[in-house]
């Protein structure tokens, strides 16, 4: 029995505490299938085995609490670590540039990584904390994104409540499609910039 099956079995046995723990841990970067768990919880809610409102509220609370914890770890521990690393290996200028990018575009990264490209969520939580991204803005976009995530996936679980296994496998493949598209966009942009510079 793989880890997904074990967690889903635990979800059907113990319900909401498992839902909360898996989502919280996943927001910290521990590789657990939070999306699968929330989808199956949506299906169980449709069957009347879980309360839909508890699933929505606790799911969102777990995700937001995990994100806030990761941001706090990055905020309190990150700058010291970054300073030490740049002292040893250099790259202070690159770090400053990264900080500027995060401060300018961080809100979009926070919002989209909550519900669209969820695999980028934990690294963005830590990065925004390390780079000193405004906490108020982080909180605003984090809460908005997580509410969208929980709502969307619980709804998907309810709509496809009799075909959850197929939905889980489809979502797993779609996550790779998203990562592939982002990587293609990055490589395409780097190639375009490089060709343009070499022409000058």
């Amino acid at each position: 029995m793989n880890i997904n099956d074990q967690l889903l079995a635990a979800l059907s046995l113990y319900g909401l505490p498992v839902l909360f723990s898996v989502i919280f841990a996943s927001s910290l970067g521990i590789p657990l299938p939070a999306t699968f768990v929330i989808v199956v919880a949506g299906s169980f809610a449709q069957l009347g085995d879980m309360n839909i409102w508890w699933v929505l509220v606790l799911g969102a609370m777990a995700a937001i609490a995990g994100d806030q914890t990761a941001y706090a770890i990055g905020h309190w521990g990150g700058p010291r670590l970054a300073k030490r690393l740049t002292k040893w290996f250099g790259g202070a200028l690159q770090l400053e540039k990264a900080e500027n990018v995060v401060n300018r575009w961080g809100w979009a990264g926070v919002f989209l990584s909550r519900w669209l490209v969820t695999s980028f969520g934990p690294p963005i939580n830590y990065t925004t904390g390390i780079t000193g991204f405004s906490y108020r803005r982080f909180l605003l976009w984090d809460v908005t994104g997580e509410v969208v995530w929980v709502g969307l996936y619980v709804l998907a679980g309810e709509l496809f409540s009799d075909r959850v296994q197929a939905l889980i496998e489809t979502l797993g493949s779609l996550a790779w499609v998203e990562i592939g598209l982002i990587a293609a966009a990055i490589f395409g942009w780097l190639l375009y910039r490089n060709l343009r510079n070499s022409r000058k």
Partner: peptide, 17 residues
């Protein structure tokens, strides 16, 4: 990256509910 996109898009379509 494009190969990854195509392979997993096909897989997603095959598994679609």
């Amino acid at each position: 990256s494009l190969v990854i996109v195509v392979v997993f898009a096909l897989q997603a379509f095959r598994h679609a509910p």
